[in-house]
């Protein structure tokens, strides 16, 4: 059992996400940096998909009421047990009565606390992930609060290997300007050619509106091809007849500020989407924060699939490394 003394800024239970319900408007939720989340689970010997805690900006204060093993991976927020620094990217044993706290965030945004067996909350529509907007899944559908008590599940497949740290080359990089790889498409033909070029050549800045729903960027104003709007589309040239939004798709309402839709986003609406962040880069976006810079770099679908395989290989190598 784990007792929440202080919840941190926004701590939620997340797993790989809720799949197969997008058509009714249910976004996947799930760990925003799914790579750090997966590594934390591997370190404590959990099965793929066990639920962990996603910490945002400011860490929680947790009291362990039983002996267990934990691993912390993701953003650089130095953790302490009973006041002493403990390593991240490594499995660590804790004892009943130990208290976990965090220092101030140094780099990145989100970190993951995996515990042996995973966090046990009811599985809702195939997932334990929290979708706070509608109160679905997770711990009572919400972010953690003081006094909450979390139970551990039995999703452990292997004995954790203590004292083995994940090498630096497999940990996330936090570049000052993030290259976000995108596949241009969907309604990209609605942008003027110059604007599409500007979209790809501008150094964008993350605005304060950057959360699990989406990331909004500021930079330059973009323009859409003028036209008589099709029936039902709405009056703004950035409007289209309401359609589905792919996860990671980028829309630019009124041409003002591009928005990347992420794990808790709306599943459809009436704005023209112009590109989609490749699946292998979504977790990198999730580690950027307000005022950080990003560029949208166009790639082919083949390149997107290549990067997807690279990411899968990275995880497979980490898994063999831990089993060796």
């Amino acid at each position: 059992m784990i007792r929440v003394i202080k919840p941190g800024l926004q701590t939620t239970v997340q797993d790989e996400g809720r799949f197969g319900h997008y058509a009714i408007g249910m976004p996947p939720a799930g760990a925003m940096d799914n790579e750090s989340y997966a590594v934390a689970n591997l370190l404590v010997g959990n099965r793929r998909g066990a639920a962990a805690l996603e910490v945002t900006y400011m860490g929680p204060e947790l009291e362990f009421q039983t002996d267990t093993t934990l691993a912390i991976c993701g953003a650089d927020i130095p953790p302490r047990i009973n006041g002493d620094l403990i390593p991240t990217w490594e499995a660590v044993n804790v004892q009943a009565g130990d208290v976990l706290t965090f220092d101030v965030l140094k780099q990145g945004v989100r970190t993951y606390i995996a515990v042996a067996g995973g966090i046990d909350v009811p599985v809702v529509m195939g997932s334990r992930s929290t979708y706070t907007l509608c109160g679905v899944g997770g711990y009572h559908g919400r972010t953690l609060q003081p006094g909450d008590v979390l139970h551990q599940a039995a999703e452990q497949a292997r004995t954790p290997k203590l004292g083995v740290a994940i090498p630096a080359e497999w940990r996330p990089q936090f570049p000052s300007v993030l290259d976000v790889h995108v596949v241009v498409g969907l309604y990209s033909y609605r942008l003027l050619e110059d604007s599409l070029n500007e979209f790809l050549n501008t150094e964008w800045t993350v605005t304060p509106e950057a959360n699990r729903i989406g990331y909004r960027y500021k930079g330059v104003r973009l323009n859409f091809v003028p036209r008589n709007q099709p029936f039902g589309a709405g009056s703004n040239p950035s409007n289209v007849v309401d359609c589905g939004y792919p996860i990671g798709s980028i829309q630019i309402p009124d041409g003002v500020e591009p928005i990347i839709l992420l794990n808790d986003a709306v599943t459809g609406g009436g704005y023209a989407t112009v590109a989609t962040v490749i699946s292998a880069d979504l977790h990198r976006v999730a580690q950027t924060r307000t005022n950080q810079k990003a560029r949208f770099v166009a790639v082919t679908v083949e390149e997107a699939l290549h990067r997807r395989r690279q990411k899968q290989q990275r995880l497979a190598e980490i898994e063999s490394f831990l089993e060796a």
Partner: peptide, 19 residues
């Protein structure tokens, strides 16, 4: 037909709304 990244395929039947 158009791609929405590496996990989505999108098909638009018409630009305007109709039954």
């Amino acid at each position: 037909y158009t791609y929405g990244g590496d996990e989505f395929l999108f098909a638009e039947l018409a630009e305007e709304m109709s039954l």
